[in-house]
Amino acid sequence: MPSLAFAAAAAVPAAPAFAVRDLHLAIGGRAILDGVGFDLPAGQVTGILGPNGSGKSTLLKVLARQMQADTGSVLFEGRVLESWRSRDFARRVGYLPQQLSAAAGLTVSELVALGRYPWHGALGRFSALDAEKAEAARRITGVERFADRLVDQLSGGERQRVWIAMLIAQDAACLLLDEPISALDVAVQIEVLDLVRRLARQEGRTVAVVLHDINMAARFCDHLVALRGGRLVADGSVDDLVRADLLESIYAHPMTVIPHPETGQRIAFPR
């Protein structure tokens, strides 16, 4: 089982990228996050799992500073989240929301170039380095060939890649992706997640990705975190998590786990 071996090797991290402690967040009296705490390992792909309404997107938003928790703390690279200046934070952390705007009227290269904002700011010059980084981001994500097309005329998979390219141009060491593959067909899902994993492996970036599909998560992630009703119910390697009893407690539905007949990777499905 090569992938498992790999995961085990990578699971010897130094300091975590994010250290999350006892997060509480309630909206309209309903607890969305209820005492969540875990470490997000640096340089790995961490999948965040859970049923609808479990708080996984909210958790990601708190990490991305899009929302504030009521109580609890989040450290990023050892510093309290609130103490980061927003542009400094944006140079370190990129965030891809679930709902993406149509980016009407922007070409692919224009959108990717917007990722350089944290580096040049509102008034700074768009330098040669900025151009270089944007170009590199387009190349890495393979969007170069439609660089001059309008973003809103691309297919779903292409558009997702362009947005990820923007995050790459941002040069952030850590990427937070909220359901980047929902509404994509299977081949494109694999293509996008493959890209995400490559970014982590080859360039040492930290990735946290919210996913619905347990099998996709198992295939592309090094580390998994699972939420249920705003509480953390699992935190560990793929091997630790993809177990019938644990999955059943996460999804509140009986699950079966069997090895894949060809790859041997464990796959789960509802009974």
């Binding site: 899009q66 944006a90 891809l96 705007s101 917007l114």
Partner: peptide, 17 residues
């Protein structure tokens, strides 16, 4: 720059600082 970024919506613009 703001004019280019704000139409992307609140989350992406905020995420870029």
């Amino acid at each position: 720059r703001w004019l280019a970024l704000l139409p992307l919506g609140f989350p992406p613009a905020a995420a870029l600082g």
